[in-house]
Structure formats: structure tokens, C-alpha cells
Design a protein around this nucleic acid. Structure first.
Lengths: 175, 175
DNA sequence: TTCAAGTCTTACCTTGACGTCAGGGTTGGC
DNA sequence: GCCAACCCTGACGTCAAGGTAAGACTTGAA
């Protein structure tokens, strides 16, 4: 495999403007630390096709961009919040990617109105699908929480009218 | 091992009244089916000390009560909704048990007011601890959902003012 | 140039939560 | 009393999601 000496692009870029791609890429150690995961996890996610480091050094070392890290964070969210496994997460991420792809085409001036319409509609479907999953989870969780709150309220009442001087009557003594 | 011919209790019990303990106990197959888990799971949960079938036949077969099943359902909830592992679930269940225990003592007429106070307070701590866990999860999920909703809303607007006759300006074309 | 620190790939190991199978015991209806 | 259906206790298998270790290669500072 032929190689370049690297760092030829952005050699002397104007400082303020577009921060320039290819700068600010982290090695796997730093990336893992910042994303709060292990290096192994990063390699594993890559192996499953969930992420791809934005770059590699000529010697073959992975380099992660800020965007890559956001993606990792997304993975953890989907794992922890929704309890999805990595296969399911792959689906969600692919949908995310499709969204980005669509945005590209959408921005393109040559895209016709009808096409735009169709693309936006596709986005909608993708997102509403995800929304349904999340919403289902939310409702279940809300119900669960309400249940806990009921118990707490019952105990609180007991404490309240038990504290002053009355005698207990119910509350804790109920299933 | 000496044995009885079984089914001597509740042989001719009055139908309506207290359904009588020891009746209505399910064998593991039926229990698993009703709880929506595998037989293996039931045995496994027992092995970890999460549940204990209310009874055994003289021959050693497990018999599950309705309460046992509720407990199993609880385990699944804690697994799926909160993403707790079985060790963590054990903690929650032990807290549940402590609650029940307290209710017993609480109901006892001999328990003094000060003691009742203390017990109720202990319950409160236990439940509020659980509540905190759930609430944290809920907040995170809510945030996530809001994010999805924002995306959806953005797309919807594009579809709206793109549909009639205007030309696209933003919406999908934004990160 | 050299060297320590960091990375690379490959490959086997671990943990949690069960699945599955074998070999034998139990139940309950006939 | 008999038999099919069910259940018992081991014990080994499996799958996801990484952990860990080995041996070689890269990198960057001195």
C-alpha cells in the first residue's frame, strides 16, 4: 500500500474559518477516555460496523473525530436508555446515516420539489419509527414510576397523621 | 421419603370464602407460561434466591402461587424497564420483602407508636431510593424523546411549507 | 537514532442469563 | 397398576459484549 507523508492538507489553513477537517483527531486512547468507553469497545463497535474512525495515520493507527465520538455516545445512550442490543443499534444508526444522506441530497440545488417531498417523507417515517419505540418505553417507565409514587404517598400519609398524636389506621398496613 | 396421597387439604372447602391457601398453586410449566418466562428462568431465579416457590408436592415438584408470579413479573419489569441485572434486582426485591415484613409488624397491635414511626420511615427511605433510580432513567429518556420530537417537528415543517407551492429553505438541510 | 508510550491485530477468556440434554422420579387419569 | 405427560437435578452449551494478553509495529520527543 502506497502512502503519503500525511498532514499535507490543511498545512497552512486560515485559522478562524471552517475548523478544517483532519485536525483535532484523537488517538484511540484519548477517544475512549473522552467517550467514556474502553478502547476494546471502540474496536468492537468498529468490527460490527457501528463506527468507522474518520482517519488512520499512515502507520495504520485509528484517529477519531468529534463526530465519531458523538456516535459512540449515541450508541451508549441507545444501550443504556433503551436497552437495545448492538444489532438493533446498528439499525438505528443506519437510519441516522440515511437521514444525513438525505440532507445532502436535499441541500443540493438540483433536487426537484417532488423529490424533496419524497425524501422528507422518508425521514419522517424513520424518525417516527424510532419515536414509537422510545415512547413505548417511556409509558412503561412512567407507569412504573407512578406505582412507586403511590407507595411513597401512602407511607407519607401514615407518617403524617401518625406523627402528631393520632393512632395508625391504615397506610402501611395495606398491600 | 414418606408421602401422603396429596390433595387432602381443601378437599371440600366452602366455595366462596377465603380461597384457602394451598389451592390454586401452579406447576412450573403453567407458571412459566403465565408469567411469560421459561421454566429454566424460574429455576434460575430460584437458584439466585430471587424467588422461592410457595410450595412443593410431597414428591418435590415446585408449586407457584399467584404471588410468586407477581414477583416474577416484577423481575422482568426491573430487567426490561430499568435494565437492572439480577444482582441489582435482588437488592430491590429484598427491599420489597423488607417492606412486607414491616407491614406485618406495623399491623401488630403491640407495636408502639415510636416503633411504627421508625418503620414507616425506613419504608420511605427504601422506596425513595428506588424512586431516584427510576426518575433518573425517566429524565434521560424524556430528554432523548424530546430530541427525537424536535427532529420530527423540523421535518414536518419542511413537508408543510414545501408541499403547497413555496420552495424549500431550511429544515431538513440542517444538522 | 533511540526509546518509552501508545497502538495494531489475533486469539483466547469471562460473565450474565439463560438453553438444552440426559437420566431418572412424580402425577393423575383410566 | 399403568402409562403418558410433566418435573427433578445436574451438567454442559451458547450468545452478546466486551476483557485480557501476546507479540509486533508506530509515533514523537529527546
Amino acid at each position: 500500500m502506497s502512502k503519503r507523508t500525511a498532514s499535507d492538507p490543511a498545512a497552512a489553513a486560515p485559522v478562524g474559518a471552517q475548523p478544517d477537517i483532519e485536525r483535532q483527531l484523537l488517538a484511540i486512547g484519548a477517544a475512549a477516555a473522552r467517550a467514556g468507553v474502553s478502547e476494546r469497545a471502540l474496536r468492537y463497535y468498529q468490527q460490527l460496523g457501528l463506527i468507522t474512525p474518520s482517519g488512520r495515520t499512515p502507520g495504520g493507527m485509528r484517529r477519531y473525530s468529534e463526530k465519531d465520538l458523538e456516535r459512540v455516545v449515541r450508541i451508549r445512550e441507545l444501550q443504556n436508555l433503551l436497552g437495545l442490543n448492538l444489532d438493533e443499534i446498528a439499525v438505528v444508526l443506519r437510519s441516522d446515516d440515511r437521514m444525513a444522506e438525505i440532507r445532502q441530497v436535499y441541500r443540493d440545488a438540483r433536487t426537484g420539489a417532488a423529490e424533496r417531498q419524497r425524501l422528507a417523507h422518508e425521514c419522517l417515517i424513520l424518525q417516527e419509527d424510532l419515536r414509537a419505540t422510545v415512547e413505548g418505553k417511556r409509558v412503561a417507565l412512567e407507569t412504573f414510576l407512578a406505582d412507586v409514587d403511590t407507595r411513597i404517598e401512602r407511607i407519607r400519609e401514615v407518617l403524617k397523621d401518625d406523627g402528631p398524636k393520632k393512632r395508625p389506621r391504615s397506610g402501611v398496613g395495606k398491600s
